[in-house]
Design a protein around this nucleic acid. Sequence first.
RNA 1: GCCCCCAUCGUCUAGCGGCCUAGGACAUCGCCCUCUCACGGCGAAGACAGGGGUUCAAAUCCCCUUGGGGGUACCA
Length: 495
Amino acid sequence: MSTTQVRTRFAPSPTGYLHVGGARTALFNWLYARHHGGTFVLRIEDTDLERSTEESVTGILDGLSWLQLTWDEGPGQGGDFGPYFQSERLDIYREYVQELLDGDKAYLCYCTPEELKVRREEALAQGQDPKYDRRCANLSASQRRALQDEGREPVVRFRSSDVGTTEVNDLIRGQITFDNEMLDDFVILKSDGMPTYNFAVVIDDHLMQITHVIRGDDHISNTPRQIQVYEALGFPVPEFAHLPMILGSDKTRLSKRHGATSVTEYRDDGFLPEALVNYLALLGWSYSATDTLFTMEELIEKFSLDRVSRNPAVFDMKKLEWMNGVYLREVEPGRLTDMVMPRLQKEGLVPKTVDGATRARVKQIAVALQTRIRTLDEIVPSSRYFFVDDIEYDPAAVEKFLYRDYVPDMFHVLHDELAKAEPFTETNIEKAFLAVQAKVDRKLGDVIQPVRVAVTGTRVSPGMYEVLAALGKDRTLTRLKTGAQMAKKGLAIHS
RNA sequence: GCCCCCAUCGUCUAGCGGCCUAGGACAUCGCCCUCUCACGGCGAAGACAGGGGUUCAAAUCCCCUUGGGGGUACCA
């Protein structure tokens, strides 16, 4: 075990929202740093001028913050190794590019993207490796001038070795060997003056003193290129750990067509950050044969790279939903009310300004539905009948439970019993029901199910007494009257 | 095409040569609880991709095949 401070980083490119795969990578980096009392760095890799946007940066920052994946250095945090936006580090890259140029470890290349594309396709068509043909590798000064005069903007290419092998020592996969022959002279500085990923990542990871590069295994193939740059510059090579990919249900790379892939989308749909984190932690990592539920603290304590899997993992929405439900059930009533309130307001079910009585009622409803929702958003459809007067009736439910000959009379009796219930509490409501049940001499279910349909419009709801108490006496009595009329009409038509 | 990675129930995984007639979780199904649903409890079904080796012994080690994923950009 080395005594050097562990420093990890998450280095997203701001070309879109924070993807759950990215969040998982961030999480593992964060956990590794926290576990070792190290530093977690956030660096924005915005060298792609075409695709990088300000909104993406904001979205990524928001997503990480929501997940509680706090960074010690990076945007908004500062740090001794900044700037943390690659677009602000251009001078630094140029300096090292020049160093390579001076040492003849890199050279100017004047081939245009179009020319390269044609040559690549030709090579492929002839069954040859589509690597750069090095035609600019040994240009004379006058040749360069001629090309320059044609108006060509050069790129800088790394002069890569094509003999021997490059070894990647991966903490998760062990040693991986690449034939240097496979690597071509890749571009390190684009014609617009921006560095490419494979170059900038090396400079930054070195300068930011990153000790452990933990990233998706789609970067494995890039690693030998990066190692060659480390070596050309005389930088020590950090540790690498390549995480398995996250796939969709069809085993292809997780993308939008598999469903939600954005962290903020999960937030908006009503997932809890601790549930998403717990779920993501289990995608590629496991602690034991039996444990699946972990708090953040436990994750920090138990996380280790040697328990990271090598297999790609399919993102299982069902399991995430289950896990979210588990966390949801643990939420205190007060906090649950706070979480549910804005969603009800957004739907216009609860007014924008909430008085004490309304809040108490929402709390009562939220608690009643707590074991029945898997995401916060589900509160909306499952509680609608508490808030609106023109409830929707499920025809099948009406048919089955309301169109019974004893129902109209029973509803009248129940109506009068409930009218007497004061205060309108669960216990008093239960007394009324038991009295009615005795009077009509039927099973409790035969009393309750018709009432449930009359009151909620459906055959599914929390406990009847709980529902009526939260609904309130007035609405309950009104719906019983309406129900009795519906029952009468229905029975008349049927007979 | 070439290079690299990966391969245990439908899914996430435990397993790191004998403890495995392969364990857990989600999903599925059944039963219990019960005013419905949910929660909870109990139970069932369900996997070592195929073929060769190595070994007294292989899910575990090696090789091949097959399958999946990734890379091969002036994207990251």
